[in-house]
Each structure stands twice: as structure tokens, then as C-alpha cells.
Design a protein around this nucleic acid. Structure first.
Lengths: 350, 350
DNA sequence: CAGAGTTGTTTAATCGATTTAGCATCACTC
DNA sequence: GAGTGATGCTAAATCGATTAAACAACTCTG
């Protein structure tokens, strides 16, 4: 039952452990084919796999990556980041240590130390949502930031291209013929990186299209279905000629709230009101009635990117700036042309 | 920048590395207080933390736990299991290796080997949902099964008490006055452990209450909002006197579909139709309108239990049988008394 | 004061691999 | 047949800790 060691293979093959090691690591330049074969056969026979701990001690590399996050593993939001990171690691024979710190600084510090003591080959520092963070001082250089960017730079980072996502969402609505497009923003967040960028993208499209946004179209609510519902109510309470025919929501949950508000007034989606969300949360976007057109957060791809950089397989294009991962729009059924009553307005465009 | 080793501490304190090791591991029986203090001070001064790899090689224990799962890390369903396991591990100074295998047997086998090569002190084998699995042959004995039970036993396991959950849901509906209670089941699943047990619990309550279930009350759909909607339509199409006034749904997503079906017919929840879900998925249950009464899956607690057993902190009560974790009902607003038209029926009870 | 027992510390083996330097052996070359 | 160069393999050091055994210096005992 005891583990098979390299010395067992050596004994079985009648050679020294040095030879076994050389053969199994494919450094056979000076080893005869006969011996190499014998060693490989012996290793297979006795079922030898090298002890990673011993190897790690000697080589100072553990084929192990530490992934520290506030709570991506424990919330339904960003698990696909883990998935992406995990897949790349596995493809290259690495294991990942996962630590969720619950955003507790003490826990975070201890986690970083524990991972360093385990001689992880690299670390990834991940957040649940796109924001700017102060990099903990003890993070080793080269640590990759995932879904967040360090205040002072100095680390490779990957974040969603929220600005482009805002553009895509607004373009989709403009293309459908809408002119009165609201932005349902999140309420006083955290350093509002994601919401600010999405808003910028939205404003850019309006501007390019020659639409002057009504200030009343920028409403806020907390990041929940209820928050979205209340904010939507305020939009729908606007007088007919200022009332938006389409709403771009900060996220899918708030979009779900917009659905509720619309339904309560007997408005149909998309016939009477078009809605675009953000995040592409499977449990929300795809299951709404009708399914929600939304902008996908490329969590899986960001996770892959981060791990590739951590493993040194890929280098950041521009080491100075965070890598911006595209946010593709996912067309479902919540966007349609504006209702006829509003159509006269949009005709102005030509 | 190089790591501080025990020899650096020894040099700083003017003692041998053996003394340093003894002091820092609190084996000071034969060490003078003066020396011990000097060593501790020196260690703090130079910022020493032991290299876990070297220690692991010597002690054969790594303070590391391997957690293998089909895909709990990457789906929004069961992340709280990870959270529970993770918290216990951290409380005891352990790190956890996470591997999602995507239910691929080759990946699984390689993961188990890789974890064994890393000398993890124990493994946890987790599933995304409660089911019976064939234990991979290479799993070390003592591996804890989380949210699944091994076909032939032989391993400690923890699963939700789905039967009791079914009882709780049905009791809540009976208590509200319902007599015509449907079970919206999942369609031909996987070995249907969870759904079967929940159904049993439901049937038990009906039986205790003297209700003879109409076979038409047991409908099935696929595990999605759409599946729930279609199945609910079939229930609502039943003639008035057989039509259920309450539906117990296999999960929250299907319950969301039941909401849609009800709304489309102009039925209000809970005034016209009561609904109980299962899972307590935050993104679904809490955000529905009205918020969904549901049975919570104790993912966090199961995760804790599994890790405690893995670390040997707790022993299974009955080593032969899986530990059943209670599923508490979460009362929200989707259950009310049956509508007046149906009330005459339920009066029969007295 | 020899022998036994304490006390405080160190020496050196050990965990299981990798890797450098070196030892044989053999084949050529001049 | 001495010198040179390959070729094939191994001895031994090494990574950084832990720990059993040994040792040195004291203190007691009888």
C-alpha cells in the first residue's frame, strides 16, 4: 500500500535512481535505448508516479498555482472564471490552490503567506466583479489580476471591456430603431468602474447617433430585482413624450426587475418596451420570459487569459495596461422595434 | 528577496537549526526559556515562515486537502459547498486544491493521481447535485463524499435530507389549507435520488393527512424554467375540481416557470395558486415576484461537514450510512390559503 | 568521587526526488 | 599504444525542513 518510490523502480530495472530520473524526464541524450526501455517498463510495472513534494523541494517549482479571490468560488456570479483558469492549468499539468478570503484582509494576508510557503509557481488575484483594488503588499510580483485592476499598475491584469459592452448594448437598441434609450444604473456602488464604463459606452453611441440624452433617462437602483423594478417605475412614470422605449440595464438581475415593473403595467416585452441586460447570468437571462438580450461577461475567457499569463504561456499585449476582454452581445428576445406611437420620433433620424 | 530559511534563523539566533525547529514547533521541554525567546525573536526579525514543501517531505503530511468535483466550482448551483469546506480548512490551517473534472473520467483519474502525488492529507469527492456515484477505484480510503453517495458504501458521505425536505414543503402547503397539491417533478433524470426522495416525503404527508393524490398531480418537465412552465400548464388545464391549488416544484427554476404559466393565465401568486420550490437559489427564489417560499439545500453546512470529517475533527455518527443534512424551509410569499372556490373542498377535512 | 540522572543543545539521518561531476569502457587516431 | 573523445551509467550533493540519537556539562547520590 505504501507509495512506490523512484528507488523501487531503480531496483526493478537494475539501475541507479539517477538513471531512472533521467529517463523519466526524457533527458536520454546519454542513455542507451535498451536501458531507457527497461526503465520505462519497470516504472509502468510497479506503477510509479513521482512524488511532487520531493520533486518540488529539489526543483523549487511545484506545478501549482495559487488563486486568491474575494468570493468568486462561493457566489453564483463568476464561477466560470475559475473554470477557465482551471482548464488551462489542467491542460498544462498544474493544480490550483483555491482560497476565498471573503474580502477579509487578515485572511487574505494569511492566504498569500500560506500559498507562498507552498511554493506556488504563480498567483492569481481575482475579484467577483470588475473594480480597482489596492494590491496587497505581500503579493509576489507577476501576480495576475483577474476581473480587477491594481491601483498603481505593476501587475498584469485582465478585465471585461465594459465600455465596448455599453457600446454594443446601445448600438443594438439604436439599430432596432430606438431613440429614447434609458440607462438603468447601479446605485452608488463600490468604485464604480464597471457601471461608469458601460455608461460611457452608452453615451458615446447616443452622441454618435445624434441623440441628446434626457437626464431623466439615467436612473439608479440597487443591484437587485427590486432595485431594477423601482428604477424602471420611475422611467415609466415619465410623460409619454419623454418616456424611454428601451432600457439598458446595469445587470441581468435589475433587468429582471424591469420585466416585473413592465408586466405590472401591462406592457409587453419587447412589443412595448425593449430591454437589454448585462452579465448573461444563465439562471436569470435565459430563463426570463421572454429570454433576455444581454451583454455577456467573458468570465471563462478572462479566467483562461489570467492562467495563461500566470503560467508564462502568453504575455500581455501591453504590459502597462489591463487587457480588455470583449463582451459579446447575446441576442435573445427582449429587443424589438419601438412601439408605433413612438416611431414618429425615431423617424426624425433620417 | 530569496526566501528566509531555517538556517538563517539559526545563524541569527546563534543556535543550530534543530533548536530552531524544536522551538518553533513548541517542543520546548528541553530548551531553556532564554534560548527559546532568542529563537522566537530571531525568527520574527528575519521574517521566517517554514517552507511547507520541505516540511511536507519530511513529515509526510502537507496540510493540504484535495477537493474533486464534477463542476461545483463552475456552476452557480453549489458554490456554497466550496465555501463551507474552504472555511473549515482555513480555520485549521489547511489549504484546498480544487479540481473540477467536468465529469470526465480521464480527467478525474488524472486529478486523483495528481492530488495523491501532492501528498494531500485527504480528499473530498463532491457532486453538483445529490446522486449515487460509482467511486473511482483510485480514491484513497477515507475520502469523503459530498452531495453524493458511493454505490457500495465504504466511504463517509453527506447528502441533503431530501425526504424530510419533501415533507416540510408538503406540510407547509397542508398547513396553509391546501388539499389539492401537485408535485412538479423533474423529467427522467440521472439516477433520480433527489427527486424520488422529495416525492416520497410529499406522498407521506398527503397520506398522513388523508389525501388521496390524483395521479394527474404528478407531472414532469425538464429542469428549467421552460420545463416548469409546460408542466404547470398541464396542471392548470385540469378540470376545476381536480386542478391543484398548490404546486411543490422540484427546484426553484421550475418554480419560476410555474410563475410564468400562472401569470399568463392571469392567476396571482399566492392568492390563486401557491407554489413551493426547492434549492433556495438566491438569484431565483429571492428575486421572483413574489419571493418564492422554498426548501433550502444546506450546501454550506454539507461543505463544512465534509471537511470536518476529512480533517478527522468529526466522525460520522453512523459510519455505514450517509449523513443526512436537514433542509430547512424558507418562508417567503408564494404560499397562501387556497382560493375561496376551492375552500369548500378543503373543509371536508374536519 | 565514580556512577547515575538531568538539562540543554547539536549532530546527522531522513523524506524522495533532481542534477552535477566523474568514473568506466570502448573506439579512433596518429 | 598513448592520447582524445564519445558513450553509458552512477555516486553523491542538494533542496529545507524534522527528529532520533548523541553529546557535553551539571547536579545529585551513596
Amino acid at each position: 500500500m505504501a507509495r512506490v518510490r523512484i528507488s523501487d523502480v531503480a531496483a526493478a530495472a537494475g539501475v541507479s535512481t539517477a538513471t531512472v530520473s533521467l529517463v523519466l524526464n526524457d533527458r536520454t541524450a546519454r542513455i542507451s535505448d535498451v536501458t531507457a526501455d527497461r526503465v520505462r517498463r519497470a516504472a509502468a510495472d510497479v506503477g510509479y508516479t513521482p512524488n511532487s513534494v520531493a520533486r518540488g523541494l529539489r526543483t523549487q517549482r511545484s506545478r501549482t498555482i495559487g488563486l486568491i479571490s474575494d468570493r468568486i468560488a462561493t457566489t453564483p456570479f463568476a464561477g466560470r472564471m475559475l473554470s477557465g483558469a482551471q482548464d488551462v492549468a489542467r491542460e498544462h499539468g498544474y493544480l490550483v490552490f483555491l482560497v476565498d478570503t471573503d474580502a477579509d484582509e487578515t485572511v487574505e494576508r494569511e492566504a498569500i503567506r500560506a500559498l507562498a510557503d507552498q511554493q506556488v509557481d504563480a498567483m492569481i488575484y481575482a475579484c467577483m466583479w470588475h473594480r480597482v483594488v489596492d494590491a496587497p503588499a505581500s503579493l509576489p510580483r507577476g501576480t495576475v489580476f483577474l476581473d480587477c485592476r491594481p491601483t498603481d499598475g505593476g501587475f498584469p491584469a485582465v478585465v471585461p471591456d465594459d465600455r465596448a459592452g455599453g457600446v454594443a448594448a446601445a448600438r443594438a437598441l439604436v439599430a432596432a430603431g430606438h431613440r429614447r434609450i434609458a440607462y438603468l444604473d447601479v446605485d452608488e456602488p463600490h468604485p464604480p468602474v464597471a457601471s461608469g464604463l458601460r455608461h460611457e459606452g452608452y453615451l458615446q453611441v447616443l452622441s454618435e447617433t445624434g441623440i441628446v440624452p434626457d437626464p431623466a433617462w439615467h436612473v439608479r437602483g440597487d443591484t437587485s430585482s427590486a432595485g431594477g423594478r423601482e428604477a424602471t417605475d420611475r422611467l415609466l412614470d415619465l410623460p409619454e413624450e419623454r418616456r424611454p422605449t428601451a432600457i439598458f440595464c446595469f445587470n441581468d438581475r435589475m433587468a429582471a426587475g424591469a420585466y416585473v415593473a413592465a408586466h405590472r403595467r401591462g406592457l409587453r416585452i419587447p412589443q412595448d418596451l425593449s430591454i437589454v441586460g448585462y452579465d448573461d447570468q444563465q439562471l436569470v437571462a435565459a430563463e426570463l420570459d421572454p429570454p433576455l438580450t444581454t451583454v455577456a461577461l467573458p468570465h471563462y475567457e478572462m479566467g483562461r487569459w489570467a492562467m495563461q499569463v500566470a503560467l508564462g504561456i502568453r504575455a500581455p499585449d501591453d504590459p502597462g495596461a489591463p487587457h480588455l476582454m470583449p463582451c459579446p452581445i447575446v441576442d435573445r428576445d427582449s429587443v424589438g422595434p419601438p412601439p408605433a406611437t413612438a416611431a414618429s420620433d425615431s423617424r426624425r433620424r433620417t
